[in-house]
Design a protein around this nucleic acid. Structure first.
Lengths: 204, 204
DNA sequence: GGATGATGTTGACAGCGTCAACATTGCGCG
DNA sequence: CGCGCAATGTTGACGCTGTCAACATCATCC
């Protein structure tokens, strides 16, 4: 490896940061997790990276591009999570596990999930986001078709996504607890919802 | 009626507007429909109401309070839509009609729907929003229980909402069309998803 | 070793939400 | 009837933001 070909990180005192893009993303991720996408500001992440307020514009055309990059990383994480799912004994169990995995992701990184699937970003403007979400959908479609639904199981696949997505949203939404007498058991809700879906799919 | 007890609308030239709150809401709704909640700015709605930039603060403590009012109005509209649903022959058909009605609402007023069910507002801060959404949920719960699910059909009700909500989101999301070979038939998707849910509920 | 492109800085601009101080008006009470 | 008060609207300011243009510094390659 040629170490001189990629500049190492410089400590304070040097004019060029060297790994600014990474530093910006790290700061942005922190702000996102802490206060939602509104809390991610160009000037603030520059401050956290100990860099001038306009430096981020050497790496991102504008704030939206930065957020899109954050979301794209989130999609990669989600895809990796699906890829790392243990081999399931039956297609049914696999679908349940995917749903649980999706909702777990949303619960662990709620603000990132909101950024990825919310209305903040116009995904049509960011091809990387399209590709990433396409991958996830293809994965889901394969699982649904393994259940015995004849390909292309378009509507059924979308219904499955809608189901998991809706459950994730309800689980995240604190509003829910206010509606219920007892606190919500998220795992049980995911499980039950997935089974309703599976039974509904089978008895056609 | 004592007409002098409520000031009438004054035309241009008078110091007091008279119906500023309504005018602000109208302008805000227009901006919302046109460009999403980000496009709703205090100064801009003031401009559209032909009033100074700080006048809205006599009616709303801050921007979020204004948005919350918009959302509350949206919830009322949605509740009215549910209330106006024709009497269904069976509980099953009623559930399908509610789902279709929900998705129709989202399609007709996408930005309002996003505001109501998105992450823009912290609903716990606005009791009116809680009450309104509580009403919708109670309505749904009654319908689910009419299907024969023993009360309180908490998980099943939430699953139903999750389903409809997820479908609405997918239908709104332009990203979907990019995933599919043919354009999405929203009505067919809603119908199919609702039936999957109903069949899954029955075969328990 | 000097030109060149990449990267970071400085300073500016317009726009925003919000507040305080002030102006104007309508309404109720003496 | 008239006065004073509360409601409503205006003006001007503050600090913040995203973004751009002009300039500075550095690494790299002929």
């Amino acid at each position: 490896m040629d170490f001189r070909s990629r500049p190492r990180h410089r400590n304070a005192g040097s004019y060029h940061h060297g790994e600014l893009r990474q530093a910006l993303l790290a700061a942005a991720a922190e702000l996102l997790a802490g206060g939602g996408s509104d809390a991610v500001g160009m000037r603030e992440i520059a401050r956290r990276a100990s860099v001038s307020h306009a430096a981020p514009y050497r790496h991102y055309a504008n704030r939206e591009a930065l957020l899109a990059d954050l979301a794209a990383i989130g999609f990669e994480q989600l895809a990796a999570r699906f890829a790392g799912l243990p081999a399931a004994t039956t297609p049914e169990r696999r679908l349940v596990e995917m749903a649980r995995s999706y909702v777990d992701f949303a619960r662990e990184q709620p603000q990132l999930w909101r950024l990825m699937f919310g209305n903040t970003l116009d995904k049509t403007q960011h091809p990387a986001l399209l590709d990433a979400s396409r991958l996830v959908l293809a994965n889901l479609r394969a699982t649904v078709e393994a259940l015995g639904v004849p390909a292309p199981a378009t509507h059924q696949t979308l219904a499955a996504w809608a189901f998991a997505h809706g459950v994730a949203r309800l689980v995240l939404d604190q509003r829910l607890d206010a509606h219920l007498d007892a606190p919500l058991d998220a795992d049980a809700l995911v499980q039950e919802a997935a089974w309703i879906f599976l039974r509904g799919l089978r008895h056609t």
